[in-house]
Amino acid sequence: MDSGLPVIFFTAICGSLVASIRNSLWHKLSIFNDSISDLWLLVGDFNALLSSEDRQGGLNRRSGISNQFVSCFASAALSELVFRGPKFTWKRGSLYQRLDRAFYYGPWSLKFPEADVLRLPWIHSNHRPQLVRLQSWSPPTIVGFANDLKEWNGKVFGNVFHFKKQLLARIEGIQRVLENRTSSHLMELECQLRRELDVILYREELIWFQKSRSEWIQWDDKNSSYFHQRTIKRRKCNRIIVLKDEEGNRLEEQGTLKKLAIDFFSKLYLDDDIKNSCYKLRGLFPTLSDDCLKGLDSLFLDKKIKVALFEMKPWKALGPNGLHAIFFKNPSRG
């Protein structure tokens, strides 16, 4: 192919409930296998068992193994993709069976060495959906994840305040029309827009909640103006408006404050004179014991890292990666 990607023949399987029809399918697959020289992927409900381990529970004690299916599997030189998740893919009452599979033929280990099958939960069927992943997922870097979040926020999540303004304008326009005439279509549209507005307002609450970092506010408090005021108040408390220089002069101009802060911290860690009268630190701290020094030199254990992480407040200041601590403590809520 021009793209350089390998050719893959894909076959979706739905095994019949009738044994004779299934046996015909196994025979046709064996014949078709002789004509394939490229990669071949077979996924679906084979409705047959390869071994006694593919069945558990149930009242009927028969093995359910299909000898024709086993013969087809061996003669066609098929291999099964590694699966992630529960072992059994079908259930009825107390009977569990492994009917859904994913087989491959050809040099898959060279083309897709990390390919696997993810078995998803039962929802509307007694068969588990199967997700074939040609390349296994690996956790992204923090920087890459942050960039992906920014792109997702702009393209998928969207600008909450823009959507809110747009929905309010549409609802207002519909209500003006309904004052003069009755329209069932417009009434239904207004209800739909109100539901969409509820979702947008909930997102707005979350935005202000994260910015305010108020831990004692209940999650179901529907007062975005409060969160807004808390955020503004916090910003005012954290804002530096006056500093004194070395001569005791009060400085208020923002440019001068910025330069004064930069100069102060630049000199703070460059001055090697331990006799500096402003920072007489020698002898003011207790001496560390040998055990403490040994502990400082020890390796970071996963258990200690977890304890330190879970001691952090969930909505405190963002870390250097731009994420709250709750993201690592509970990703589903972060």
Rank of each mutant, 00 (worst) to 15 (best):
C191I: 00
S138R: 11
W122I: 11
L197V: 09
V117H: 02
Q166R: 05
Y202C: 03
A169C: 07
P129D: 14
I200L: 05
I142M: 15
P139M: 14
R170Y: 10
R128Y: 08
H124G: 06
L134S: 13
N147E: 15
V199W: 06
R133A: 11
F145R: 15
M187N: 04
E205L: 13
L118A: 11
R176W: 04
L120G: 11
K150S: 13
L193A: 07
F145A: 15
H162P: 00
R203A: 01
E205Y: 09
K150R: 06
A169V: 01
V177P: 03
V177A: 02
V199A: 04
H162F: 12
P139A: 15
Q192L: 06
C191W: 01
I200Y: 09
Q166M: 14
E188T: 02
E190M: 01
T182W: 02
H127M: 13
Q166G: 10
G154L: 15
K165G: 10
E204T: 02
L118K: 05
K155A: 15
N153I: 00
R170C: 03
I171S: 06
H162M: 11
L149M: 10
H185I: 11
S125R: 10
V132S: 12
E179D: 01
R176A: 02
L197I: 05
V117D: 03
P140M: 15
S183N: 08
K155F: 10
E151T: 13
V199L: 04
Q175F: 05
P139T: 14
N153S: 08
